[in-house]
Simulated scan of single mutants.
Amino acid sequence: MAEKTYTVSGMSCGHCAESITEEVVEVAGRTGVDVDVPAGRVTVTGEALGDAAVRAAIVEEGFEVTGAASAMPA
């Protein structure tokens, strides 16, 4: 299982976290999503995560992925 953390700008509240979570849970291969609004990070876990798909899901909700994904084995 892999874990990727994305730096995301524009998040300011719990609703932001909910909307990102709702969109990212639809990404194939995803097993978990954690949104840390104060830190500006979204961490996604799963098998064979498509980086472009995760980024697209975040952008679809109106946020900007400002940093490269950092990948770590989970």
Rank of each mutant, 00 (worst) to 15 (best):
A2R: 14
E3F: 00
E3R: 13
E3N: 11
K4N: 13
K4P: 06
T5A: 09
Y6T: 07
Y6I: 05
T7S: 14
T7N: 12
V8W: 04
V8A: 05
V8K: 01
G10E: 01
G10I: 02
G10N: 01
M11G: 00
M11F: 03
S12P: 10
S12F: 07
C13R: 02
C13Q: 02
G14C: 05
G14K: 01
C16M: 05
A17L: 00
A17R: 00
S19L: 11
I20G: 06
I20E: 06
T21I: 04
T21E: 03
T21N: 05
T21K: 04
T21A: 00
T21D: 01
E22C: 08
E22T: 13
E22P: 06
E23D: 13
V24T: 04
V24L: 08
V25Q: 15
V25M: 15
E26P: 01
E26G: 13
E26D: 13
V27N: 07
V27K: 02
A28D: 15
A28H: 12
A28L: 11
A28G: 13
G29M: 04
G29S: 04
G29F: 04
R30M: 15
R30P: 07
T31F: 06
T31P: 06
G32C: 08
V33L: 06
D34N: 12
D34S: 11
V35D: 01
V35R: 01
V35K: 02
V37M: 00
P38C: 03
P38G: 02
A39S: 08
A39C: 02
A39R: 04
G40V: 00
G40E: 03
R41Y: 04
R41Q: 13
R41S: 07
V42D: 00
T43M: 08
V44M: 08
V44A: 05
T45M: 12
T45L: 12
G46K: 10
G46W: 10
E47N: 14
A48H: 14
A48G: 15
L49N: 02
L49V: 10
G50N: 13
D51Q: 11
A52P: 08
A52R: 12
A52Y: 08
A52V: 12
A52W: 07
A53N: 11
A53V: 09
V54I: 15
R55F: 01
R55P: 02
A56F: 08
A56W: 06
A57C: 08
A57W: 09
A57E: 10
I58V: 11
I58C: 03
V59M: 09
E60A: 15
E60F: 10
E61S: 09
E61Y: 03
E61M: 14
G62M: 12
F63A: 02
F63N: 03
F63M: 01
F63K: 00
E64K: 07
E64R: 06
V65H: 02
T66C: 01
T66M: 08
T66W: 03
A68K: 12
S70D: 14
A71V: 15
A71G: 09
A71K: 12
A71Q: 13
M72W: 09
M72V: 15
M72E: 15
P73L: 15
P73R: 15
A74L: 13
A74E: 11
A74I: 10
